[in-house]
């Protein structure tokens, strides 16, 4: 009796391994690739010359003053490692977290002397994945004076570009309104050309 069950266990193991362990993901890959080739391979974004400049879903380390800058990242050693996603995992009473935030805060204040209002908390808080491609509209608009000055254009033009890139909530209620950093930066380059090379 138990021998039969043991035999059934071996055979069921093999059958399910082939069925749901191999056939299912491979068939899904084929079908998904046929219906949604763009999404299945990473939602890549190109510039006007057709060069792929990143994925529209993955944050990149923008540091130049003329670009919209993303949230801090704890992915990989230097951050924004898209093959090493991670949050900081620092707890709510962590001295390391407080020190890191204070340092980021200092830098942001220094780089954004003309910004209006206090620094949005989001800009000193690392995202969960380290690859969050978005900013809230408030955190994006806060950076407008710096971007406009670095590019030598009027603030209102930069503001318009960011505002036209605000994505609303899904189905009007789900999630939060947001701005995709890479798409805004591509739009900025499209309107004003590549920014000068000077960084921080």
């Amino acid at each position: 009796m138990l021998r039969n069950e043991l035999l059934a266990a071996v055979r069921t193991t093999l059958v399910t391994l082939i069925g749901v362990g191999l056939a299912y993901p491979l068939v899904t890959t084929a079908v998904a690739g046929a219906i949604f080739p763009q999404q299945a391979s990473g939602s890549m974004v190109s510039d006007d010359y057709g060069n792929v400049v990143g994925s529209g879903l993955i944050a990149q380390p923008f540091a130049k003053a003329g670009y919209l800058q993303p949230r801090p990242s704890a992915a990989g050693e230097k951050g924004y490692d898209a093959a090493g996603s991670s949050g900081s995992n620092l707890g709510p009473t962590s001295k390391a977290l407080r020190d890191r935030a204070a340092k980021d805060l200092q830098r942001l204040i220094q780089e954004n002397p003309n910004a209006e209002g206090p620094v949005p908390a989001e800009l000193v808080s690392a995202s969960a994945s380290g690859l969050d491609p978005h900013l809230s509209p408030a955190a994006a608009l806060w950076q407008v004076p710096r971007i406009a000055r670095a590019r030598g254009v009027e603030e209102s033009r930069v503001r318009t570009i960011i505002e036209s890139n605000i994505e609303g909530r899904d189905l009007l209620v789900l999630g939060e309104p947001r701005v995709n950093v890479l798409l805004v930066n591509r739009a900025l380059d499209r309107h004003f050309g590549r920014p000068p090379l000077a960084t921080r």
Partner: peptide
Amino acid sequence: ALHGLAQLQQGCGNFEGKET
């Protein structure tokens, strides 16, 4: 951990480790 840092926006919730 971010309480009382000068010039930081307060009262908006805990965003460390969350996605926008």
